[in-house]
C-alpha cells in the first residue's frame, strides 16, 4: 500500500523566466543528474521528504502563456526561489518586472532566494561540482561541451547593451552584486527591514544545474530556512486551522468524499 497522501508541511516555489533552468535545477537536485528538459507546462508539483517534514516544491512554467497561474502557485508559499540566467541580463530584469508581483500571495514571512543559474558558462569554479555525490563523468562531459574562453567575464556587461551576445562566448551579464541589489529591492518592495531579514549572502546563489555546482547547497539551505516556518505553522494550526491553505484544501476533499460515497 502506498502511503496515504503525505500532507505537505510547507511550500516552496521556483519562479523565473523561461529557459533559465528551473526544471533542470530541481531535476539535478531530485534525480542527481542533468537532462535536457522540455518547456514546463503550467506547474509541476513535487514532494520532498526532509527529515520528518514533507516539503512541496512547485516548479512553475516561465512562459508568459502561464503567467496568470503564478499567483495561484505562490499562494501560501513559505519560500520563493527567484531564478535567473547569469548569461542573460533580461532574465534578472524579468524577475522584478514580471515575477515579483506574483509573490504577493505568498506568506508574509516568505523567504526569498535569488539564484543565478548556468554559472558553469561563465565561471570556471562552477565546473567543479559541489554536490556530495557529483559524478565524475558528468563533469568531463560538461568540460567538453562548455569550455568557452573566459576573457570577457571580468567586465560585467552594462544592462543596456546586449550586443556582445552575438559572439561565440557567453559571458557573465549578471554579477553577484546585481543579484544582491535585487534582493535589497525585493525587501523594500515587501516592506521588510533589511536588518531583521536574512542577509543577502545567505540567500543569493550562483548555481549550475549542468555540473551540480551549488545546487544541493541551494535547496538544503532553503529547506533549513523554512523549518521555523513549519514549526510556527503547526503551532498556529492548533489554534486556528483556517489560516492554512493546504488544510482547507484537505477539508474540501473530505467534503467531496462525504458527498459521493
Amino acid at each position: 500500500m502506498p502511503d496515504k497522501m503525505k500532507r505537505p508541511d510547507v511550500k516552496l516555489v521556483l519562479l523565473g523566466d523561461m529557459n533559465v533552468g528551473k526544471t533542470s535545477l530541481l531535476h539535478r537536485y531530485m534525480e542527481r543528474k542533468f537532462k535536457e528538459t522540455v518547456s514546463t507546462v503550467g506547474g509541476a508539483f513535487f514532494l520532498k521528504q526532509w527529515g520528518p517534514y514533507n516539503i512541496s516544491i512547485w516548479d512553475t512554467a516561465g512562459r508568459e502563456q502561464f503567467h496568470g497561474l503564478g499567483s495561484m502557485y505562490c499562494r501560501g508559499a513559505a519560500a520563493v526561489i527567484l531564478t535567473y540566467d547569469v548569461t542573460n541580463w533580461q532574465s534578472l530584469a524579468e524577475l522584478e518586472e514580471r515575477f515579483l508581483s506574483l509573490t504577493d500571495t505568498a506568506n508574509h514571512d516568505c523567504i526569498y532566494a535569488i539564484v543565478g543559474n548556468k554559472a558553469d558558462l561563465t565561471d570556471p569554479k562552477a565546473h567543479l561540482s559541489r554536490t556530495s555525490d557529483g559524478q565524475p563523468e558528468d563533469q568531463t562531459e560538461c568540460e567538453e561541451e562548455r569550455t568557452e574562453p573566459q576573457v570577457l567575464s571580468a567586465c560585467p556587461t552594462p544592462p543596456a547593451s546586449p550586443a556582445s551576445l552575438s559572439g561565440v562566448m557567453l559571458h557573465k551579464q549578471v554579477t553577484h552584486e546585481d543579484a544582491v541589489a535585487l534582493y535589497g529591492r525585493i525587501l523594500r518592495y515587501k516592506g521588510l527591514d533589511e536588518k531583521s531579514s536574512l542577509p543577502a549572502e545567505k540567500v543569493c546563489f550562483e548555481t549550475s544545474a549542468k555540473t551540480g555546482y551549488n545546487v544541493d547547497a541551494l535547496f538544503e539551505t532553503m529547506f533549513d530556512l523554512v523549518l521555523p516556518s513549519i514549526l510556527r505553522k503547526r503551532h498556529e494550526n492548533q489554534e486556528s486551522p483556517t489560516v492554512d491553505l493546504e488544510d482547507s484544501q484537505g477539508a474540501h476533499s473530505r467534503k467531496a468524499r462525504i458527498g459521493c460515497c
Binding site: 526544471t23 530541481l26 531535476h27 531530485m30 534525480e31 537532462k35 535536457e36 528538459t37 522540455v38 514546463t40 507546462v41 503550467g42 506547474g43 509541476a44 508539483f45 513535487f46 516548479d59 512554467a61 502561464f66 497561474l69
Partner: peptide, 17 residues
C-alpha cells in the same frame, strides 16, 4: 500530444490549464 510533449520530467504531478 500534450502529454507526450511534456513528459520530460516525469516524477512530478503537473497542473496546467
Amino acid at each position: 500530444n500534450l502529454i507526450g510533449a511534456s513528459s520530460a520530467f516525469q516524477a512530478g504531478e503537473i497542473w496546467t490549464p
